[in-house]
């Protein structure tokens, strides 16, 4: 009996947790956290590719992995900027939601440049990788220029 009660209780609790999670998912502060983590992760992989391009490390085995990760992460970036997440601990500019088409186009452009980097990485010619990385960096900057607040 006691055993049964414990199982039932566990089931109720589990339901409560899952149900709770469903209703609380995508709270603005968590969405903001998610996209900032995503951007930081992109930054980490970019930094690694840059270390190689600059000749500061020579672990070329990681080049393709890092480059592909940038593409994959950026493809998840769009969903991390839903309506209602302009306020809070975020550097996202309200313009994202005033001109969504332009924001999406900026993201598409960056994804294209990241794919070009991944292709160059596969080819292994470091001069081509450097050029592709430069183009990617400028594309990231173009979105930041329009859509990210920079105050420190």
């Amino acid at each position: 009996m006691q055993h049964f009660v414990r199982i039932a209780l566990a089931a109720i609790l589990a339901a409560a947790v899952v149900g709770g999670a469903a209703s609380a998912a995508n709270a603005p502060e968590h969405v903001i956290k998610y996209r900032q983590n995503l951007m930081k992760a992109v930054g980490g992989h970019i930094s690694n590719v840059a270390l190689l391009v600059k000749g500061q490390v020579d672990f070329s085995a990681g080049l393709v992995t890092d480059s592909q990760a940038i593409v994959d992460l950026l493809k998840n970036a769009g969903i991390a900027f839903p309506e209602g997440t302009a306020e809070g601990k975020t550097k996202a500019k309200p313009e994202i939601w005033q001109d969504r088409a332009k924001f999406d186009a900026a993201l598409e452009d960056t994804i294209g440049k990241a794919e070009a980097l991944a292709v160059a990485a596969g080819g292994g010619d470091m001069a081509a990788v450097g050029a592709a990385l430069g183009a990617l960096g400028k594309s990231c900057g173009a979105c930041h220029k329009s859509f990210r607040i920079k105050d420190e």
Partner: peptide, 21 residues
């Protein structure tokens, strides 16, 4: 100055993005 990418992998925004580009 060539790419706008910092050592941390952040990308310069603001007016500096235009300067780099």
């Amino acid at each position: 100055l060539q790419t706008g990418l910092t050592p941390d992998g952040d990308a310069a925004g603001g007016a500096m993005a235009l300067v780099v580009e």
